[in-house]
Design a protein around this nucleic acid. Structure first.
Lengths: 111, 111
DNA sequence: TTCTTTAATCGTAATATTGCGATGAAGCAA
DNA sequence: TTGCTTCATCGCAATATTACGATTAAAGAA
């Protein structure tokens, strides 16, 4: 069917999975990593950096933006993108929360 | 095309994105969270817990297992699943690494 | 043996994703 | 104005994902 039964899950489960889904593509990881290292950049920078077509980069940026992971402002003819600081902290919290739920079992209570 | 150009990216970028992709579905997040809280469970537990069909749960478990996020051992007629402790730590490291690359800009060098 | 439980796999339909060429639309320079 | 740059969007083809009924296989109980 290709459609996810979102109503079966909690809001938080849907949120963290939707963030993970957007990060689930190497190009989008590469975009995020590039933004983390240079602070801000424009579409054409990423075209040169990643070797994907302009339309493809634009599409990935759109997905990152609609997930609130990045933000962009118009700067003349170009669009300046950067990490969304607020959401980035929130995402970090969501994932840390998940990771820290793990208690290494001392009783061997595992497969 | 629906095919990812994995050769354009680093091994680490492909790795973290492939993990994120597997976590990019609320059912798989729910499965992982359930395993984190009860330590181990079988397919039918998850069918009751999540309200998805047995075949669907089995498919999600397969993806989690092939990404090494969980592991399973045969236990009679059933299959016992749990978090893969080693990989879980590794994944945590990968994501923390990504998150901690962010330096909150004091110079307003952002969009 | 037969019956039951359990779960993997197959097959299929509906939908989503990926990538890119082509086409706009908007700003700026000459 | 014309021309150039920059990027979003459209439209399409190839492929991937999601969900599940049906089937299969294996283990244990009667």
């Amino acid at each position: 069917m290709g459609i996810t039964k979102a109503d079966l899950f909690t809001e938080e489960q849907n949120h963290i999975s939707s963030i993970a889904k957007v990060l689930g593509h190497p190009a989008r990881i590469a975009i995020v990593e590039h933004l983390l290292s240079v602070n801000q950049c424009i579409n054409s920078d990423l075209v040169n950096e990643l070797g994907l077509a302009q339309a493809t980069i634009s599409q990935h940026l759109k997905e990152l933006k609609s997930a609130n992971i990045i933000q962009g402002t118009i700067e003349g003819t170009s669009m300046c993108y950067c990490i969304n600081p607020k959401e980035w902290g929130l995402i970090q919290g969501l994932f840390n929360n998940l990771f820290n739920q793990y208690q290494h079992t001392t009783t061997g209570d595992c497969c």
